[in-house]
Computed example of a mutant assay.
Amino acid sequence: MNYQGAVVWKKAMKLAIATCRCAAGLPAEERFGLRSQMTRAAVSVPSNIAEGWARESRKEKAQFLAIAHGSAAELNTQVLICRHLCWLSHGQSDPLLKLADEVGRMLTVMRRGLRGGRSEEVEGRK
């Protein structure tokens, strides 16, 4: 299976697309601030999953999944900041937070699978 068939990558893509759409509604003065950081973090998640997928060694795969996981956590924090600043409503932020959490949990399982050698978890089929 290639990375585009992995559930985790598909969910990460949904997260990236939803974040980019949501970030477009942030204040114009945030174009090069929080909006830019949010979109970079969101795009980093599926991008690093894909790059890790293409790597040969478990160590390299794990490294890219760790980067994706970190980007999901970074995005989670940025969404919370926007919500506290009243730039995003609960209706806008809750779906992003839920997806970021779900992707983060899946990445945790995949990273554990790399350490333990369970291919179905590493390939995102579980």
Results as ranks from 00 to 15, higher is better:
residue 67 I to S: 02
residue 116 G to L: 13
residue 13 M to F: 06
residue 30 E to P: 00
residue 121 E to F: 12
residue 20 C to S: 13
residue 32 F to P: 02
residue 33 G to L: 11
residue 91 G to R: 12
residue 25 G to C: 11
residue 71 S to P: 05
residue 102 E to Y: 00
residue 124 G to E: 11
residue 121 E to L: 15
residue 6 A to Y: 09
residue 34 L to F: 09
residue 112 R to Q: 12
residue 58 R to K: 07
residue 104 G to L: 04
residue 36 S to R: 07
residue 12 A to I: 12
residue 43 V to C: 06
residue 61 K to N: 02
residue 44 S to Q: 01
residue 5 G to C: 04
residue 28 A to H: 10
residue 1 M to G: 13
residue 67 I to Y: 01
residue 71 S to G: 05
residue 41 A to I: 14
residue 76 N to D: 15
residue 20 C to Q: 15
residue 45 V to R: 04
residue 77 T to M: 14
residue 101 D to P: 01
residue 16 A to D: 06
residue 66 A to P: 05
residue 92 Q to V: 01
residue 97 L to G: 11
residue 57 S to E: 01
residue 23 A to E: 07
residue 113 G to F: 03
residue 57 S to C: 03
residue 117 G to C: 00
residue 49 I to S: 09
residue 43 V to S: 10
residue 99 L to C: 11
residue 73 A to I: 13
residue 126 K to W: 10
residue 3 Y to F: 15
residue 106 M to S: 15
residue 115 R to V: 04
residue 4 Q to D: 12
residue 77 T to L: 14
residue 46 P to I: 09
residue 80 L to G: 00
residue 42 A to Q: 01
residue 69 H to G: 03
residue 61 K to T: 05
residue 32 F to V: 06
residue 126 K to V: 14
residue 78 Q to K: 00
residue 124 G to V: 09
residue 41 A to F: 09
